[in-house]
């Protein structure tokens, strides 16, 4: 299924990736400017996966995510100004500034949950799939999670349930582990996919740095999920951003300069290897090579996204902190 052919669709995909990237850069700027900005796990380098998923979800589909969630949320269509305000703890934030980065949700765009606890969302996503099936409106549930979730027993319980009850769920694993790097989170399985396979879940692997490949895999998976009402597990292999384990957001690989796609001489420094293959520049190079866009188109698109983010930043900065009285409200419905 849906190979991307139209120029508009391809540029729209790139725009979604750029929005994710520029959003994270705004978070880094805000972190530098303000005393507190929380503990963030930035989505930089994952855009190829998130954009491909979000581009293909329908309005009624349910998404559930994890601590590395910013890209998912804005990629799905949440207002970037309100998302940024949430991260900055402002009243205008998506959750009134209470949840911050780790608990950001936007139910208006079908975002059910973010959980800062490893494995915290996968059970919810499975329940979402159960609801989708029961309600019979053709919607699917998506669980986005990192490879560490497979250490948690709840993921097995969820896979078993999803498989046995044939639930329409996309288990989207963003695997940014390099063998040997993730020292303390360990899986005995030789291949991550052996686990869902053992529970009879259809599995696929895809290069997470190639957004169109992810798009094709996700498209195929979603079609299968909707048609057969079954779960599918996709492992998207991602080359981790060198800054992905930082506690305070910083420009580990610099602010993205889109012209590096055609002016490769600009790529220097200790992380040049990562920059060379990062999903956005890689996609731009592909679009240029296939003449789907000209340099000017790309620059215009980036400008458009940057302008959108500038407005978002203004909104977030202007939004006040919540009133103290609000703190004790909302524990119950």
């Amino acid at each position: 299924m849906p190979e991307i052919v139209s120029r508009e669709a391809r540029l729209s995909l790139l725009e979604r990736m750029l929005l994710m990237r520029r959003f994270e850069e705004a978070v880094i700027h805000a972190a530098a400017k303000h005393k507190y900005i929380g503990r963030n796990h930035l989505y930089i380098g994952h855009e190829g996966t998130g954009a491909a998923v979000m581009a293909q979800l329908k309005p009624g589909d349910l998404a559930h995510t994890t601590h590395r969630n910013h890209g998912h949320i804005v990629g799905r269509g949440a207002d970037p100004g309100r998302a940024l305000a949430e991260i900055m703890g402002r009243e205008g934030g998506l959750c009134g500034g209470r949840g911050g980065t780790w608990h950001m949700t936007d139910t208006s765009v079908g975002f059910q949950s973010t959980s800062a606890m490893v494995g915290g969302s996968i059970g919810l996503a499975t329940g979402g799939g159960f609801a989708c099936k029961q309600l019979g409106q053709g919607n699917v549930s998506v669980a986005l999670f990192g490879d560490g979730v497979l250490d948690e027993g709840i993921s097995y319980e969820a896979f078993n349930f999803a498989s046995q009850y044939s639930l329409p769920i996309l288990f989207m694993c963003e695997n940014n582990e390099k063998p040997g790097r993730r020292e303390t989170s360990m899986l005995a399985a030789d291949r991550l996919l052996d686990i869902p396979k053992a529970l009879k879940i259809h599995t696929m692997t895809v290069d997470g740095g190639d957004v169109e490949a992810v798009h094709a895999a996700v498209g195929e998976a979603l079609a299968r999920i909707r048609k057969d009402q079954v779960p599918v597990f996709i492992e998207s292999q991602i080359e981790a951003w060198p800054g992905s384990h930082q506690h305070k957001p910083e420009f580990t690989t610099g602010e993205t300069d889109i012209s590096m796609a055609w002016d490769t001489g600009k790529i220097t420094g200790p992380h040049a290897d990562w920059i060379r293959q990062e999903p956005i520049l890689r996609y731009v190079r592909k679009l240029l090579a296939e003449k789907a866009a000209a340099q000017a188109d790309i620059e215009a698109l980036d400008k458009k996204v940057q302008a959108k983010m500038a407005k978002a930043r203004d909104f977030a900065e202007a939004s006040p902190f919540p009133q103290a009285e609000g703190a004790i409200l909302g524990a119950f419905a």
Partner: peptide, 12 residues
């Protein structure tokens, strides 16, 4: 219990 074979759970 999902899966073709329980043994796959250990084999994984």
């Amino acid at each position: 219990t999902a899966g073709k074979d329980i043994a796959d759970r250990g084999k994984a």
